[in-house]
Write a protein that binds this DNA or RNA. Structure first.
Length: 265
DNA sequence: CTTATCGGCCA
DNA sequence: TGGCCGATAAG
């Protein structure tokens, strides 16, 4: 039968859409819509698609059946930003359509962006040292609770472990929120990450919190720990390099390297 | 075993 | 109803 996979402009390049009409049974005539990733994996529902695309694409306005973005079709969802303890405990899942404030590039670190204008005088914006960080909600990190990373087959990856002795501050000092807070700080801050240095913040974080720092007590990183970490990274890169060399892609690994030091005091 | 297809639950 | 996903038949 006619297996027509059409391009889907609303999705990243390479994604295909297919609609098949049921030709027998009680539901004959009904149609099912499928999507195919650039690698050929089949998707048969919007939640499944959202899990896979994660924050790379915001599917809030995406109509799965038609394959088009429908502005104003913001899903009559009154309040869908309730992934707090209550809704999660009730069995609610985190909103997978929500885009996190995380840059979607290969590197998690800030990097210059090439602005392509018409032609002449293309300039590279060397991240203007913003004088003030934009305002953020107090304890906004709590919204990141419950997020899990998973691989392309949707298997949930094991959670990262935090070093012993790292202590959270503020409401809900669970480990996953703490991890999110520190990871976010590393993403977004251009200054060293020290944790909360004011002792007062431990007693009343609502007042004394340094919002430029993650929600944890101050910590120190020893040279020894840095050396250990560098060794881990070095070894991981060796493994990656060998794997890529087998594919003749070693140069790609070289070019994607990122400075090792420079974060944390 | 993997994949295609329809049933059927649930909002 | 239509979306979503389990069941089951088909390869």
């Amino acid at each position: 039968m006619e297996r027509k996979r059409t391009d889907c402009p609303a999705l990243p390049p390479g994604w295909k859409k297919e609609e098949v009409i049921r030709k027998s049974g009680l539901s004959a005539g009904k149609s099912d819509v499928y999507y195919y990733s650039p690698t050929g994996k089949k998707f048969r529902s919007k939640p499944q698609l959202a899990r896979y695309l994660g924050n790379a694409v915001d599917l809030a306005c995406f109509d799965f059946r038609t394959g088009k973005m429908m502005p104003g079709k913001l899903q009559k969802n009154k309040q869908k930003f309730r992934h707090d303890a209550l809704s999660l405990a009730k069995g609610g899942k985190p909103d997978l359509n929500t885009a996190l404030p995380i840059r979607q590039t290969a590197s998690i670190f800030k990097q210059p962006v090439t602005k392509v204008t018409s032609h002449p005088g293309n300039k590279v914006k060397t991240d203007l040292q913003r004088a003030v960080e934009p305002p953020r909600q107090l304890f906004w990190e709590r919204r990141l609770r419950g997020l899990r990373s998973s691989d392309v087959s949707e298997e949930v990856l094991h959670a990262m472990e935090l070093p012993k002795g790292l202590q959270g501050i503020g409401p809900d000092s669970s480990d996953d929120v703490l991890l999110s807070a520190i990871a976010s700080a590393l993403h977004m801050s251009s200054t060293p990450i020290t944790g909360q240095t004011s002792v007062a913040a431990e007693k009343n974080p609502t007042i004394w919190l340094n919002t430029a720092q993650p929600l944890c007590k101050s910590f120190t990183v020893t040279d020894e720990q840095i050396r250990e970490q560098e060794l881990k990274v070095y070894q991981a890169r060796r493994v990656l390099e060998e794997a890529l060399t087998a594919d003749g892609l070693a140069r790609a690994a070289e070019n994607s390297r990122v400075p090792l030091r420079g974060k944390t005091a």
